[in-house]
Computed example of a mutant assay.
Amino acid sequence: MVDDEENVLSAMRRVLRREGYRILSAGSGGEGLAALRSTPVDVIVSDQLMPDMSGVEFLRQAKENWPETVRIVLSGYTELQSITQAINEGAIYKFLTKPWDDDLIRANIAEAFRYKALADDHRRLTRELATANRELQGLLAEKQHRLELDEASLEIAREVLYCLPLPLIGIDPDQQVVFANTAASTLLADGLPLCGEYAAECLPGEWLVLLRDDPPDYLVWQAGDGARRVLHRTLGEPSRPRGRLLVVMPAEADEAMRPKRGQG
Rank of each mutant, 00 (worst) to 15 (best):
R37Q: 07
L125R: 12
G224L: 07
Y198F: 15
L245E: 00
A34K: 13
T182R: 01
R261F: 08
F113N: 07
L164Y: 00
A62M: 11
R124G: 02
I87V: 15
H122F: 12
Y77N: 03
A199K: 06
E68W: 14
T78N: 13
L188H: 08
R158F: 07
L49K: 15
E148P: 01
L33A: 13
A130C: 10
L139G: 04
D254T: 03
S28A: 13
A11P: 03
M53C: 09
K94S: 12
S82M: 04
N7I: 05
D102C: 01
L203G: 09
E128A: 05
L161D: 00
S239I: 12
R60L: 07
N181I: 00
A152H: 13
L118E: 06
A11L: 10
Y115S: 04
R37Y: 01
L74M: 15
E155R: 15
P51D: 03
L36H: 06
D213V: 04
V178C: 07
Q176D: 05
L168A: 04
T234N: 12
D42Q: 13
L194H: 04
L33M: 15
D3G: 09
A199V: 08
S153P: 00
M53H: 10
V178N: 02
W66C: 10
S185C: 12
A112V: 09
R37T: 06
G20E: 08
P193V: 01
A152D: 12
I105H: 06
R240Q: 08
K94C: 07
E155H: 13
E197Q: 14
S46Y: 04
R37E: 11
R261A: 13
R258D: 07
L96M: 15
L192I: 00
L96P: 03
A132M: 13
L147W: 11
F58E: 08
A26T: 07
S25F: 02
V43S: 09
C202L: 05
G90I: 09
A26D: 04
G243Y: 12
D4Q: 06
E237A: 14
P238T: 06
R124I: 05
F113L: 05
W66E: 06
R228G: 08
E68T: 15
Q263F: 12
L59D: 03
